[in-house]
């Protein structure tokens, strides 16, 4: 009958703190973009409040979990919650992949006159619809937003950093799987070393990604380089953001493993974060194949 005892938590301040935090963050961001002097500081403040809220709230949940306040029903609620949260993330990335496929398969071919649509060379002299090189073929153009398009001097390199980064991230998936296995076999020391390896690989990935951005920017491939630049930076950027979050969550898990949390049978925190990492890994694979290659 232990299932029949319901758990309802007491009142909490964290949500209202979070709401205030994200509001300050977003209002600050909007003002920053409009060139208001206090915008950036408000952003930092809002961000700090959100971080404070996340650590406070989740910390409270972890504490309650460790103290055995939760029952198996609460555990299942968390599982449902995490699963559908991740599904919403999948749909968010789907929107950007959708934009990539649409531009690639439909709008750029249309601009070149496919399907009896507008014949663009009449608008831009010498326009040739190409995919990654869209900016090459529309030289000296100003976007509708008033920004001048940046012309890349060469194509994105696929063999060097991106391939290395893919290998790194895949390797981190492998080490995480080893950590997972070790946790299920209750070999705590191994869990810790594999987790450390995963985090190090993740951070290395982020470092190389920054270097890659530096190269691409120097070569002129920028957000303002037309649709390829837009999809390239938005997809890889949001992915990098998720890797960052994943690395932070893995670090928290590492800390918790050291503190002796989790057992071979009950380690939802670990499973949730592990799945998240695998998901981020798969998103990168999709990026690598669709943005860099196909």
């Amino acid at each position: 009958m232990s299932e029949q005892k319901y758990y309802v938590p007491d009142g909490t301040y964290w949500p209202i703190i979070g709401s205030i935090g994200v509001t300050i963050l977003f209002v600050g961001f909007a003002n920053q973009m409009h060139g208001v002097s206090w915008g950036a500081s408000a952003m930092v403040l809002g961000f700090a409040i959100v971080i404070f809220m996340l650590f406070g709230w989740l910390g409270q949940v972890v504490n309650e979990s460790v103290n055995g306040i939760y029952n198996s029903q609460v555990d299942r609620s968390f599982r449902w919650g995490m699963s559908w949260f991740i599904f919403s993330e999948v749909m968010f990335f789907a929107a950007f992949f959708g934009a990539l496929f649409y531009a690639r398969q439909i709008s750029v071919p249309w601009l070149s006159g496919e399907g009896n649509n507008l014949y663009t060379p009449e608008l831009w002299d010498g326009f040739k619809a190409t995919w990654q090189q869209i900016a090459f073929s529309t030289p000296g153009t100003t976007l509708k937003s008033g920004v001048e398009m940046s012309i890349p001097t060469q194509l994105v390199d696929t063999w060097g950093l991106p391939a290395l980064n893919t290998a790194l991230l895949l390797l981190s998936g492998v080490t995480l799987t080893f950590a997972h296995h070790a946790l299920r076999a209750e070999r705590r020391n191994q869990v810790i070393s594999w987790l450390v390896a995963t985090i190090v690989l993740g951070v290395a990935f982020l470092g190389f990604q920054v270097a890659e951005y530096g190269h691409a920017y120097a070569d002129g491939l920028q957000l303002t380089s037309g649709i390829y630049g837009s999809t390239f930076y938005m997809l890889t950027g949001f992915h990098g953001f998720h890797v960052t979050i994943g690395a932070i969550m893995l670090s928290v898990i590492l800390y918790r493993v050291q503190k002796g949390h989790f057992s071979a049978d009950s380690h939802f925190g670990f499973e949730g974060v592990a799945w998240y990492w695998h998901f981020v890994d798969v998103v990168w694979l999709g990026l690598f194949v669709f943005v860099y290659w196909l």
Partner: peptide, 10 residues
């Protein structure tokens, strides 16, 4: 300066 909805940039 992205060009998602701007035909100038594809």
């Amino acid at each position: 300066g992205t060009a998602f909805f701007d035909a100038t940039g594809g």
